[in-house]
Design a protein around this nucleic acid. Structure first.
Lengths: 199, 199
DNA sequence: CCCATTTCTTAACTTAGATCAATAAAATCA
DNA sequence: TGATTTTATTGATCTAAGTTAAGAAATGGG
């Protein structure tokens, strides 16, 4: 599908937080975008595939998970108005281990790997955008990394509430438990412990 | 100190794994580099400072750690022939939480934040290098992230032996324990358990 | 609105790692 | 070399999360 003008306006707003551009440059980028619907519960990508897109979430939100010993482990959540991809797979062209599942009826605007590389070659401004986005995401991943190494599950839970309150508005609790690396029962107990110690 | 020709040759070799460049471009980059000695046990940077360098390790190896409740938690190890920095601090210009400690007498070639930004503006090839390096590091951090979420300490230990054997050649065991997020006593028990189950 | 399904909570028991303490082994250096 | 410090191991006990199982609460579709 072809994205609407409003759709592209949201992308423009996002990009302009990172780089300045003229109309020609912007249009060259926006023209590469294709719109896809992702019904609730379905996956935009499944493990084993090579991730061939950077996706801007136009509507809805997603869960990234892997299956380890027949068990789903939630790796991340992505919300409306943000880009996401499986960076390692997208960059290395190796099969992904991830599933990108829509948690509600969603829409994304995708840019293919080929389009991305082409536009890097054509216009230096997008090369810069690519660097800044990679750096931006790197910082977020590094923060997560620290949280996992430095905090116990209870502290991680409190930290997540502070740093990403949106997660608690939209995501079922057992997925949050999985994201924290614990069982749903344990999260339930942590919540009980915290609510009792508050009294 | 001014780096020697041999020193810069090592840097050139590293960079050429990522981008192609001519002599003018290369020299513009290499001229920004300053050489520093870092005696064993001392820190190139301490928590609270803004990380103002990307460092190429010319000789020796380093440990990155943070202090959480008066306790050192080892975050990473960096070896000869690689670049390292505290990316979040370097990029955001916020104070770092990290210490970069030389584990043996070491030497680094550093590029300052200012030099880096200047050279990004001057030559698109370095913008591309910046993107590729950020992407490369992002992939490594994402892998670490997955390991921490998907593997228990024993599995992480085995994974680390496979993926970074160099760590076991050069790094004391209690630092490795800290890197795995466990106490030295626990690592000792894991090793015992593994050696017994092998018999 | 009701029924089926999903999600969350609670309880009893197990287990891996933390903690505290002591000692052994290895490395460092005068 | 011998003494001191650093690093690694082992044991006993404690604790938080895992596991299994059951039931309660919330959600969603017909």
């Amino acid at each position: 599908m072809i994205p609407s003008t409003e759709d592209l306006e949201k992308v423009k707003e996002y990009i302009s937080r990172f780089v300045s551009f003229n109309d020609e440059q912007l249009n060259a980028f926006l023209q590469t975008m294709e719109k896809k619907r992702v019904p609730k519960g379905t996956c935009l990508m499944e493990a084993g595939q090579i991730c061939d897109y950077v996706a801007f979430i136009n509507k809805g939100h997603f869960r990234t998970f892997c299956i380890i010993n027949h068990e789903e482990v939630t790796y991340n959540f992505s919300f409306e108005g943000n880009f996401y991809t499986d960076y390692p797979s997208f960059l290395t062209r190796q099969p992904s281990m991830e599933y990108h599942q829509a948690l509600v009826d969603s829409e994304v605007l995708v840019v293919s790997y080929e389009s991305m590389q082409r536009i890097y070659r054509q216009m230096p401004v997008w090369e810069k955008f690519g660097r800044l986005i990679a750096e931006f995401i790197l910082i977020r991943i590094a923060e997560r990394n620290r949280a996992m190494l430095f905090l116990n599950p209870e502290e991680q839970y409190l930290n997540l509430m502070k740093s990403r309150p949106k997660v608690f508005e939209k995501i079922p609790q057992h997925y949050i438990a999985s994201y924290l690396g614990i069982q749903p029962e344990s999260l339930s107990r942590i919540r009980k412990r915290l609510s009792e110690s508050k009294k």
